[in-house]
Design a protein around this nucleic acid. Structure first.
Lengths: 100, 100
DNA sequence: AAATCGATTCGAGACTTATCGAAATATGAT
DNA sequence: ATCATATTTCGATAAGTCTCGAATCGATTT
């Protein structure tokens, strides 16, 4: 993976609110395997004390870094984690993987 | 670990040049176990095409995020990776570890 | 069709950051 | 002591970011 792309991923996680947003999505994503219910953005908004416009902006950045994918269902938005990418980044961070 | 602290770590890695700097330090740090020679900042400066003042600033940010530790030997600066922290962050990223 | 609700877009304000050149510091070499 | 080298500090500029409120869009409900 290119350094620029990796940096972009880290940048997406570099804002406290956006990171918390990502972690909540990741948690819900993880839990969905057992519970079956998915991660609705609406539910997250109540947890973080930032406005909806900001959340929307943050989600777009996470998606733009390929950390998550989004899917619109009716008027709701559902988020999923791109597990493959996250695993790859984790390996680069710990240098288990050659950077190329 | 606090979300704020984790975000700070990611922020430290969110700039392409600084990320490359970190990766070079990590590589040299890794190699030092076999070769015995350590990571001198001077050698890195030539690889990245940014000035010395900027490098100095970036190193301070990496150290400030606890990603690396620095040690002055004579007029040279040596950097080591804080492996423990990196491992922890990597686990948080992949959600192997509860966030608390 | 009107109202409601979730999400998005837009424009703006306050704040932070990356980078540089010049100058300063400090250590080691001549 | 003088000089060269490695790093740091300072001041400045240009660019980017976070967040908000207001307005808008789209889908569902009444």
């Amino acid at each position: 993976m290119e350094t620029k792309k990796i940096a972009k991923i880290f940048k997406a996680l570099s804002n406290p609110n956006r990171l918390e947003l990502y972690l909540k999505i990741a948690e819900a994503h993880e839990a969905s395997f057992k519970s079956g219910c998915e991660c609705f953005v609406t539910d997250i908004i109540d947890c973080l004390n930032i406005g909806a416009p900001t959340i929307s902006h943050h989600i777009k950045e996470l998606a733009n870094a390929d950390l998550i994918t989004t899917e619109k269902r009716g008027k709701f938005l559902i988020c999923k984690v791109n597990e493959h990418l996250v695993a790859e980044v984790s390996e680069i961070l710990t240098l288990k993987h050659p950077t190329e």
